[in-house]
Design a protein around this nucleic acid. Structure first.
Lengths: 224, 224
DNA sequence: GTCTATAAAGTGATAGAC
DNA sequence: GTCTATCACTTTATAGAC
């Protein structure tokens, strides 16, 4: 979290911090880190600014100078972590259209997604956002947009390409991708949403996702 | 909510309430109704016992006599409403195995489910439960069990029967039903989960669900 | 069982010194 | 920008009378 790369040392072997390195930015990050932990543990309302203050190590007034109030802090923290969290695997989907074996490529892609999406911290963040959507609709839209841009959009492009080439019969690639996501990662995700302690073994995961991919391919296989 | 069936009238046409009709039970129900409204609007933590007190019309001490504390009230209210909410359509799934046209039966079933599941109040309840799962894991398990018993279980039986008859090739009916649910109602449900203001037209709903049913049937059609 | 009144602790937010 | 100290208010929960 707050660990820097090794910097230069002075003649006594003590690290030289290049400058105060914008101590303000440093504190800002400490606040964000502390707030995220508290919001995830307690939820928005039950998380107290006192607890965030203690955990961050800065004073409460500093938090208010930086973020104004609790709502803005919440939006900044959660809104900031979302793109950062999902910015991991945009790459995978693009290669699907040119993969030597489509089924293998789709299975690998979905398994990669599932590994991220089912991580306990990601599931907690997801629950937090869902639980506050009636009070923070912006977060719902942001989450939807981020996950869509990161996951669905590149795959829609790929399905569209495969359709044009005649390798798939997906005249409505957007719907096909929604179904693909629902039938693969959506299945274990639903279980983990309601059971935080649920564990899905790697074998079980591959079985579910493999079957989901077969479902999609059986329907949209190009009729040669 | 609190409307009784018409009772007997006295000689002046004024309704005779048979007895104090357990005034305590009446107040208990008033508390539950008020608490549900507040919990749905504010979430668990932000909902105040004062607000529930005012809305219910009874005193705060009465609430504590009945439910002990806020946590128990929450569990009683949400845990009580869950089975009650979903006790609507167990019937539909049983008829699937003997329907004259399987596709039509599945589409109608899924559309019926979607009409319930996408209702704004049900979606809000679902978000409330999801948001509090890290603090009330019992609710997650209860929700999962209730929805499973009400929706999936009868359909698993039906898929099993169809498999034995050779009308479907579903050696793993449980997985097939999970995929059916995910590919039909799961698709619009995901959208509505993150966007409370989303609206899905009846036409759009039938198109999505129809396509989802085709997905399942294409994969599990009996290979004659 | 039900009420009024209140206790005891915690809440978000800010004033003013530095 | 950051801190200490504090405000004004709300919170859950409970005594004690009836």
């Amino acid at each position: 979290m707050g660990v820097e790369a090794a910097g230069p040392l002075d003649e006594y072997g003590i690290p030289v911090i290049p400058a105060p390195v914008d101590v303000s930015q440093r504190k800002r990050q400490a606040i964000i880190d502390a707030a995220l932990v508290e919001f995830l543990r307690e939820g928005y309302s039950a998380a107290s600014m006192d607890a965030i203050t203690n955990r961050s190590g800065v004073s409460k007034a500093t938090i208010y100078k930086h973020f104004g109030n609790k709502e803005r802090l919440f939006l900044a923290v959660v809104g900031g972590i979302l793109p950062q969290t999902y910015a991991r695997l945009e790459c995978g989907a693009a290669g699907v259209a040119d993969a030597p074996d489509l089924r293998t490529a789709l299975v690998d892609l979905a398994v990669d997604w599932a590994h991220i999406l089912l991580r306990p911290d990601i599931m907690s963040l997801r629950r937090l956002v869902i639980g506050e959507i009636d009070r923070f609709p912006q977060l719902g839209q942001l989450w939807y947009r981020v996950t869509f841009d990161m996951y669905n959009a590149p795959l829609i492009t790929a399905f569209g390409t495969l359709n044009e080439r005649g390798e798939l019969a997906t005249p409505d690639p957007a719907l096909a991708v929604q179904q693909f996501v629902a039938a693969t990662v959506g299945v274990p995700q639903l279980v983990h949403t309601f059971r935080a302690d649920a564990e899905t073994t790697e074998d079980e995961l591959r079985r579910i996702i493999g079957s989901g991919v077969d479902l999609v391919l059986a329907r949209y296989a190009a009729k040669a």
